[in-house]
Simulated assay, not measured.
Amino acid sequence: MATLTDGPRTHHRAPRVSQHLTKGPSLTSLTKRIGLGAVAALGSLALLTGCGQAPSSTSSSGAATSATSKYLPCIVSDQGGFDDHSFNESGLNGVKQAATKIGSSFKQVQSATANDYASNISNLVAQKCNAIVASGFNLVDAVKKSAASNAKTDFVMIDDNSIKADNGKPIVFETSEAAFLGGYAAAAYSKTGVVATFGGLAIPPVTIYMDGFADGVKYYNQQKKKNVKVLGWNEATQKGVFVGGFLDQNKAKTITTNFLNSNADVIVPVAGPLYQGAGAAIKSSGKSAVVEGVDSDLYQTDTAGYKNLMLVSILKNIQNVTYTAITQAADGSFDNAQYVGDLKNGGVGLSSFHDFASKVPSSLTSELDTIKQGISDGSIKVDSPASFK
């Protein structure tokens, strides 16, 4: 199992619940073996590293009822909810997987609005959670306040690195690197020479995707002497098209319809579950457009009937990283060092092309492998104001 630390361990407060946690192959070695075009995409790596049987049942609060350990991992969602097929669901899956591994129960609490963040976290602290995963950038203020007043509780902060506390671990992802691959793939696939992206909110975990996507299209144009256009995002001005949240499917559908009317045939919604609004717009239009997913491999996770539109997904491996952070904390080796997931360590990546494998240019997979190596060794630069490097 990959270790989630870039520095020395700072404290060892958590109770030791097992003498020897099973260690799987590292994310890096797995990435080298499966390659970009493998069916087992990076978003599913957690299934290959120490995954056990699912809890036999859960209570109404989301706690597994077959626990043998008293260690209690918990998670609080952002507004998108745990059925977003995106970052909230991935984080929850990581907590569930960790609970199974250590033989514990778990608790989950869903945030309906931003006003719920602080109270939801306080509720989990009151229920004596040993570790609380905060699913997303928007929860950082509530996490900082709670971490400062609850030193015995460990906090795993996803998608923000501003927390500075002995009991707070920042986990972030260099998704611009994976999105660069997604942008190159979109440009290579496009028949109209127009691709588009939109975001949920204008926040760094969203705009970093959009920067990488635009860079990937630009690189394709340079390499192939083409002029594929990007709608919805201007990297130079950091201005673009946003829904204003992660819940308004109608607005996502309207935005996508406007892109389709402007001849775009590849749409990248960086907006959690709002890929569904984009998919609905494509189906209503009757046009031959496709979607690129983000965070999870939406071809595998979608249950809304849009998997046949998924060209490829830009992956942020939240499930595996969350699993590792919790199991390390439960084993007594929690640390507050920042973890940055990138292409080199397998924290981000690109899924298989699934149903579109025979429809993309035959050389695309090998080109993407070459680009991935160039990004990893620094010979190909990916720039974003939201970068963590």
Rank of each mutant, 00 (worst) to 15 (best):
G200S: 08
I203W: 07
I203K: 05
I203E: 11
P204V: 12
P205F: 13
V206A: 11
T207C: 13
Y209N: 12
M210K: 10
M210H: 12
G212T: 14
G212Y: 14
F213W: 14
D215M: 15
D215W: 14
G216D: 14
V217E: 11
K218G: 15
K218A: 15
N221M: 09
N221K: 13
N221W: 11
K224D: 10
K224R: 15
K224Q: 15
K224F: 14
K225D: 15
K226T: 15
K226S: 12
N227Y: 06
N227E: 15
V228Y: 00
V230P: 02
V230L: 01
L231Y: 05
G232S: 05
N234P: 01
A236T: 15
T237R: 07
K239Y: 13
K239N: 13
G240H: 06
V241G: 07
V241S: 07
F242D: 00
V243S: 04
V243K: 01
V243T: 07
G245I: 13
G245K: 11
F246P: 06
F246Y: 14
L247G: 10
D248V: 12
Q249I: 13
Q249D: 08
Q249L: 14
K251S: 08
A252I: 03
K253F: 04
K253R: 04
K253T: 08
T254F: 03
T257I: 09
N258C: 01
F259L: 00
F259Q: 10
F259N: 06
L260V: 03
N261T: 10
A264E: 07
D265C: 09
D265N: 13
V266Q: 03
V266I: 08
V266Y: 05
I267V: 09
V268G: 03
V270Q: 07
V270S: 04
A271F: 09
A271P: 05
G272N: 14
Y275Q: 04
G277Y: 00
A278T: 05
G279P: 00
G279I: 01
A281D: 04
K283V: 10
K283E: 05
S284G: 08
S285W: 05
G286C: 03
K287F: 06
A289T: 04
A289I: 06
A289Y: 07
V291K: 01
E292Y: 08
G293A: 02
V294N: 07
V294M: 02
V294R: 01
V294P: 10
D295T: 00
D295S: 04
D297H: 00
D297K: 03
D297A: 07
L298M: 04
L298Q: 13
Q300M: 13
T301V: 15
D302K: 04
G305L: 12
G305A: 11
Y306L: 09
Y306G: 04
K307V: 11
N308L: 06
L309W: 06
M310F: 08
M310A: 01
L311S: 09
L311Q: 06
V312T: 14
V312L: 06
V312K: 09
V312W: 10
S313K: 05
L315C: 13
K316V: 05
N317I: 03
I318S: 02
I318C: 01
Q319R: 09
N320C: 01
N320G: 00
T322C: 02
Y323Q: 00
Y323N: 02
A325D: 06
A325P: 03
A325I: 04
I326A: 04
T327S: 04
Q328C: 05
Q328I: 05
Q328H: 11
A330Q: 02
A330F: 04
G332F: 05
S333D: 12
F334H: 02
F334N: 00
D335E: 01
N336L: 06
N336Q: 01
